[in-house]
Design a protein around this nucleic acid. Structure first.
Length: 650
RNA sequence: GCCACCGUAGCUCAGCGGUAGAGCUCUCGAUUCGUAAUCGAGUGGUCGUCGGUUCGAUUCCGACCGGUGGCUCCA
């Protein structure tokens, strides 16, 4: 006598089935097409295996390939297939964790020797055999003793088992010869997996803890159909093509050289121009918004960083101390600065401040130095000398909201100018924090109010704030969807206190100002790196290192070309002449490869007519005859307005 | 920092136990060209650094320096 359960489907209809029925059975009853497309099931909101029996009344949704959860299931199963293959080829391997991740999966193994690229090929072949064998994924729930028995030869799994609390469900998945302690869910069988590729192997600490042993991690990607896999692999290639390190070399923007040191960027003339324009843009905007520019030393007494609280916290990220110049006491030690805030605070404190003076907004585009771990350095995106477009606002609590509001306005202006997409997060109070809840409450509410007033959508990063205050983080999304931390706005109650900052209130008593740290670009290095990838090296005209390249067809037009060039220079346009003894084709190609927005070709006809044959980058018309005057006028306007389009159609 | 891989001319790369090669760049010569590589010649390397093995090392081994990918998107 079987008990009946009520199963509510997404369309609201209810089916009655015997208890213990599986989602797969329901799907088959609903239609064979659905059954074939089914990947997993959503049972009472949780993702389940298709073959897991349901007991009690439930809601049920069949998950097909279109559901984002389906990919996760697929990839998680791919990880198991990977582990199955590794276990067969390397029986001595201990298995760690093997989750699905963004775009793929990985599995960690403890093996006597790291995997070689040849190993990966062999593993991939073995994986195809496992798929061919079409092992079913069988789920079981077991008691802890039973689990410990089954995984007695897997120390890493045993360690994980220790952490299970009383009454927590321990599930085990078996697929053919492979057994894993696993939360699931999985595909019905390994045969459902076909479009995958192992990408690379890398070391990874057990549980991400650098004090624990290093495991060997294999990364892979998996998709439901070949075209998705191909698209993804193509995307990886595209990312490689846009790699700012490669483009930086090709376009002669910057270099990092052993002679100078890792993470130290040398900005070549072409790259320096980009930074120069970015600085001009932001500094002009800051002055308009009543910020004040300051300059502070690169090296300061160490005591300052002790008082500010940086040194005790970040010592391993700072460069070591250096001694004083001759004559001074040997006890005086100096540090290269990892941030500017203490110096700005000292400027604030250099005279008495009244509540009427606030807010005081001190800005500095400044180089700071951070001794980042060598392994984390990456082109322009993680460096040891960074240029921050830093500013500190000292204000009263009642001014916070207005200040944040203006910063968001500035951020939006800046990021829109580049056509970046971005994501905003409000990070709230962490567990480990200083200051009372009341102050945090005020601060968080002010940030939230400013965000709401600007009508932007944002996420809440619960507990993600700095220990000294909440913050707003903005992540840039580049052209291929990767995210980078850019703008950051942080409230700080701690430093004003530590450094004894004050202002006289209307009650003529000393009060403590709030400090807001913010950087709009974040760092110029990272921002330029993102820009390079975002534009694939083809900068908008205002940022282009070389805006116009004048190309005379033969020596006969060299002089006329120089005249055009001078006209451009006089109009503030960065121009150059390519009158090298090379064919026209050669020079056109070179300008094209250097992604110069405008090529002004000057032949005999153009000389006679006072025109240029304009070849504008990316324009629909391959070339256009334009009077020199008109070109200069329009180019100037495009640069002035910081337009993203090189040569808009008329 | 840790693990793996990599390090040959300015750049991209080939080669390999018997003391180095291509293309591009650069220099010179010829060519004067109508929109993505004209032809020829030449310059250019202590094969990342230091040590070891060897009759002999760019090649094999070790250390160091540098680069690259990765280092909990939780069983």
């Amino acid at each position: 006598m079987s008990e009946q359960i009520a199963i509510t489907l997404p369309d609201g209809s209810v089916r009655y089935e015997p208890a213990g029925v599986t989602a797969r059975a329901v799907a088959e009853a609903l239609g064979s097409r659905l059954a074939r497309a089914a990947v997993a099931a959503r049972v009472n909101g949780a993702v389940w295996d298709l073959d897991r029996p349901m007991h009690g009344d439930t809601t049920l949704e069949i998950i097909t390939q279109d559901d984002p959860a389906a990919l996760e299931v697929l990839r998680h199963s791919a990880a198991h297939v990977l582990a199955t293959a590794v276990r067969q080829l390397f029986p001595e391997a201990n298995i760690g964790f093997g989750p699905a991740i963004q775009d793929g999966f990985y599995y960690d193994f403890e093996v006597p020797r790291p995997f070689t690229p040849e190993d990966l090929q062999a593993i991939e072949r073995k994986m195809r055999e496992v798929i061919e064998a079409d092992h079913r994924f069988v789920r079981e729930e077991v008691e802890r003793d039973e689990a410990q028995q089954r995984f007695r030869d897997d120390p890493l799994k045993l360690e994980r088992l220790e952490e299970f609390g009383e009454g927590e469900v321990i599930s085990v998945y078996t697929s053919g010869p492979f057994v894993d302690l696993c939360r699931g869910p999985h595909l019905t069988s390994t045969g459902r997996l076909s479009h995958f590729k192992l990408l690379h192997a890398a070391g990874a600490y057990w549980r991400g803890d650098s004090r624990r042993q290093m495991l060997q991690r294999i990364y892979g990607t998996a998709w439901f159909n070949k075209s998705d896999l191909d698209t993804y692999l193509h995307q990886l290639e595209e990312a490689e093509r846009r790699d700012h390190r490669v483009l930086g070399k090709q376009l002669d923007l910057f270099s990092v050289q052993e002679d100078v040191g890792p993470g130290m960027i040398l900005w070549h003339p072409r790259g320096a121009i980009v930074q120069y324009e970015l600085r001009r843009f932001i500094e002009d905007e800051l002055l308009r918004r009543e910020y004040e520019l300051v300059y502070t030393p690169h090296v300061t007494r160490e005591d300052l960083f002790i008082r500010s609280g940086h040194l005790p916290l970040y010592e391993d990220q700072q460069f070591p101390a250096m001694g004083a110049a001759g004559g001074e006491a040997e006890t005086v030690r100096y540090r290269v600065k990892p941030m500017n805030c203490p110096m700005h605070a000292v400027i604030y404190a250099s005279r008495q401040r009244s509540y009427r003076d606030l807010p005081v907004r001190l800005a500095e585009v400044a180089n700071v130095y951070r001794n980042e771990l060598s392994g984390t350095l990456h082109g322009l995106l993680r460096v040891r000398m960074l240029t921050m477009d830093d500013a500190h606002i000292f204000c009263r609590e009642d001014q916070i909201e207005e200040e944040i509001f203006d910063m968001l306005d500035l951020t939006e202006l800046v990021l829109r100018t580049f056509g970046f997409e971005y994501r905003i997060d409000l990070a709230t109070r962490p567990v480990k924090k200083i200051g009372g809840d009341a102050a945090w409450e005020v601060a968080e509410r002010a940030l939230q109010a400013a965000l709401d007033r600007r009508k932007v959508t944002y996420g809440i990063d619960e507990g993600g704030g700095a220990f000294y205050g909440p913050k707003i983080d903005i992540k840039l999304r580049d052209a291929i969807g990767r995210e980078w931390q850019g703008t950051t706005i942080q409230l700080d109650y701690q430093m004003p206190q530590r450094l004894g900052l004050e202002y006289a209130g209307s009650d003529n008593k000393p009060h403590q100002p709030v400090m807001i740290h913010r950087a709009i670009y974040g760092t110029l290095e990272r921002f330029v790196g993102c820009l390079i990838e975002h534009f694939a090296g083809a900068f908008p005209v205002w940022l282009a290192p070389e805006q116009v390249r004048v190309v005379p067809i033969t020596d006969g037009q060299a002089e006329a070309a120089c005249t055009v060039h001078r006209r451009c220079r006089d109009a503030g346009i960065r121009s150059s002449v390519d009158d090298r003894n090379e064919t026209l084709n050669y020079r056109v190609r070179d300008a094209e490869l250097m992604k110069v927005p405008y090529m002004a070709v000057v032949g005999q006809r153009e000389v006679e007519q006072g025109t240029i044959a304009l070849r504008a980058r990316g324009a629909k018309k391959k070339q256009e005859i334009v009077p020199v005057d008109e070109f200069v006028e329009r180019a100037r306007e495009i640069i002035r307005s910081r337009a993203l389009t090189v040569w808009p159609e008329r």
